[in-house]
Structure formats: structure tokens, C-alpha cells
Amino acid sequence: MVEVNYSQRRPSTVISIDRIPELKGWRQNGDRIEMGACMTYSEMEDPLFAAYVPSLAQAARTVGSPQIRNAGTLGGNLATASPAGDTLPPLAALNAQITLRSLRGERITTLSNLITGVKSANLGRDEVIVKVSVEAVDGPQEFLKAGTRNAMVISVATVALVLDAARRQVRIALGSVSPVPLRASAAEGWIADQVNWESPSVPDKEAVEHFGELVASAATPITDHRSTSGYRSHAVGVMAKRALARALS
């Protein structure tokens, strides 16, 4: 809409999808949580939803302002495919499945197949994002965002961490530190071996430190007007350690 207001984009056709009931809200389906593409950030902040997908609720809370959170949607955040899209790291860490529909039919894709570059989504001109589905994971989740202030801020770096106790996995995804959301796979694999899964905890401080280093080295950030690449790598390392400590506390 900003591009339209500034005449950088003159739409020849507009299709309003915000009153289609099937695209709204969220529902539980077995062990999965299904979110309509038109679910707003405010709806993600709802404690009932936050109980199932806390990392996404935390991410939603950091978006823009109340006015932006009342209007902005999950589908819009995905289609925009910004490296700084705040819902993307949680969705990456949750192995989200994204359903797209067109007159040609329906297809289900993953975040890494959908988002292919900076503001570039593998989305046909005739395709609409209809649904995003994630597992209701057994274990804590965290989302942390670094920015220049607390409100109305585009992220400088973000971290989403999911502790999947059933699979004995620690999944961590980074935002704003590469063209697309990034999973820190080496760090994930290493820390999963260190965690005592009987009563989730990490044996020592060095293990947590090393986890932070592995996460920082996974980032491939750029320097731009918001931050330097060095700060971004440092920030994801610090936030990864903090997220792990919170998840295990």
C-alpha cells in the first residue's frame, strides 16, 4: 500500500481477500496448528494462540505498532519475503508447511522453497497463499529481535529457537542476517548432543558459549543503513545463547 500511495506501483487489478472466512483466524487440527493467510499479528498475540505457537506470538508482538499489527497479515509477511520479515524465522524453525492455491490447484511448500531471495517469493501470479500449518511442538520456543528501539522497528537481527523435546531437536532460525531466513544447522546438531534430554538442560557454560559461536558463524549478513555485518553476527550469537538459556530455564 505504501508503494501504491507513492505511485511506485499502479495496480491494474485489485483483489481483496480480507473478508474470506476460510483465510481468517487459526484452528487446531490434530497435532497441528493451521493459520489462515489473513490472520493478523494482533490475532497471533492472543494468549490462546500463543500457548501453542509462542515464538510466532512473540514475533508478532514486535511488529510495527498496534495499528500495523491490527491490519498486517501472515500471508502479507510471507509474500513480501523481506529478509526482515519477523514471522519468517519462527516459521523456519517450526518447519512450517505453506499451502498455495490457484485455479490450477493446490500445492504445499516449505518456507525455504517459497522464499528464494531478498523480496523474492516463488509465487505464481495466479497463486494465493491460503494457509500456514505448523506442528504444536512439545517444548519451549523463543523469539528475540534486535533493533534500534522497542517499537516501530525493522529488525537488525532476529533469532527463533524451538526446543522439540519429542524429537530431541533444538531448531534455530535467523532473520535479517542473510537474503532468506537461515537455519543454523551445524549449531542445531551440535547442541542437541549436549542437551540432557531427560530433564532438558545443558551441562556447562562452555557448551552454551560454543553454541553462540556456531550460530554467529552461520550468519552471512551485510552492512547497510541499519547495521554492520559484524554487529549482526555478534547479535545473533548473543541472542541464540539467551534464547537457549530461556528455553532451558
Binding site: 500500500m1 505504501v2 500511495n5 485489485v14 481483496s16 480480507d18 494482533s42 498496534p66 495499528q67 500495523i68 491490527n70 491490519a71
Partner: peptide, 19 residues
């Protein structure tokens, strides 16, 4: 530009009037 749309505060500059 804040207005209430169905009781929710939104930026009216970001809402397509026809919608």
C-alpha cells in the same frame, strides 16, 4: 491517520478504501 475499522485502530493510509 488512525481510524477505527470495525472497532480496531488502523492506519487509514494503509487501507484500500474500496476494501
Amino acid at each position: 491517520c488512525t481510524v477505527l475499522l470495525d472497532g480496531m485502530a488502523v492506519c487509514s493510509c494503509l487501507v484500500l478504501a474500496a476494501s
